[in-house]
Nucleic acid binder design. Structure first.
Lengths: 217, 217
DNA sequence: ATAACAATCTAATGATTGTTAGACCAATGT
DNA sequence: ACATTGGTCTAACAATCATTAGATTGTTAT
């Protein structure tokens, strides 16, 4: 009796497709990764620490909800978020989760209680300082993510190259490191290293998605 | 490194709790109902057309994600949305669904192709007209929902009393009927009836949640 | 061609859910 | 005390989902 269902039920069912796509931790992680820029299945699998088969299955779900799109490029299939609204939703659902779930707040506070955690700061004034060169905003994500989208006046210096490229950084200035967002640990690790080496470094627990900056095709 | 990956998975898992709560059509419907005002399990079950047991089970899930809260009042348990953020999320996930899913847009257009569908209009000017009494904004939801929260300058006239209380309405003026939101059919039915009776009636396919008005405790 | 690679599809599994029935609990009225 | 009403808990079944292995489809390189 599928056709006997009320129109109304059909509407809620459609909305629930979005919920279904976002009810799995790994799928959320994939969305966050895609918010950093388009990626191949292989890359996504590696960065989310899952098998390619599983990644493919999850991406299928995300595609079924039309949150992501694909194009083929040679042997690779490239995934990207469908549009800006998806990135905004990722920020929104996370923000609701943080609002409602103490467990999440506690876990985040634990992360943030690390030395070098930055106090929340006005974005505009940070940009101004970065523009004037008074602070260095450091993007420690992989280069291709920096190229896809980055914060204004940010410099790229991927975490895994940081140790060998410390000489490029000025000693006197404050370094504000950021990565994929509050759930990503790369900036924290970068700050740990920088402080150990005598730099004045803090972590900005935000990324491009939080700033409303979305990689364009 | 394994240690830090563990904490990361925990974060996504927490966010996924929100997704899990919103991946069922009936739970979404319950959220929408609760956005209209607090309600007992019995009422929710009746209005969502499900058994009380099933309603209770779904509400349990919503409570597990802390999207709703309860108090006991005599024999009844009263549910309400936890705060304004939940209502905003309901609007947000619906808006993403509408953005991404053609099927949903089509279904909505089908609903909206009814005669008397109102063109999207500036809210401020509608409020102004309502304030001046040049249009009648009619809230056709049950009275208790009107009492919990309603649009500015709206008059309450529940759908099931409409037929017997037509005399209360002015004949010359445009009547703008609204209900629980775009997925609710009460305003549409009200408009059908009003037009049949010679009134100049249109449906505003929005409700309190869409206007950012949330029932307060 | 053949091989190699990236990714998907299919099928199978075990684990989670949705849903219901029946037992149970908590408040009210008699 | 008892019955009644509103709601939850437990257990059970069916349906769905996550995950993996194995076969399959495109694409590129040789």
């Amino acid at each position: 009796m599928k056709d006997s269902r009320h129109i109304k039920d059909l509407l809620y069912e459609q909305v629930a497709r979005i919920g279904k796509a976002t009810c799995s931790p790994k799928r959320l992680e994939l969305i966050e990764l895609l918010c950093q820029g388009e990626k191949t299945v292989e890359t996504l699998a590696r960065e989310a620490a899952i098998s390619m088969k599983l990644a493919s299955a999850h991406l299928r779900e995300l595609r079924a909800a039309r949150l992501v799109e694909t194009t083929r490029q040679g042997k690779n299939v490239i995934y990207r978020i469908a549009n800006r609204a998806v990135a905004e939703f990722w920020v929104a659902i996370r923000s609701l989760a943080e609002d409602r779930l103490v467990e999440l707040r506690l876990a985040l506070e634990q992360m943030a209680s690390h030395p070098g955690e930055m106090a929340p700061r006005d974005r505009k004034s940070l940009v101004k300082l970065a523009k004037q060169g008074e602070v260095i905003v450091l993007d420690v994500r992989p280069v291709n993510e920096y190229e896809a989208a980055h914060l204004p006046f940010a410099r790229s210096l991927p975490l895994d190259e940081l140790k060998s490229r410390l000489a490029e950084l000025p000693v006197g200035k404050t370094i504000v490191a950021y990565c994929r967002g509050p759930y990503c640990l790369m900036a924290r690790d970068a700050v740990d290293l920088l402080r150990k080496k005598g730099f004045d470094a803090v972590r900005l627990p935000e990324g491009v998605a939080e700033w409303g900056i979305v990689p364009v095709r």
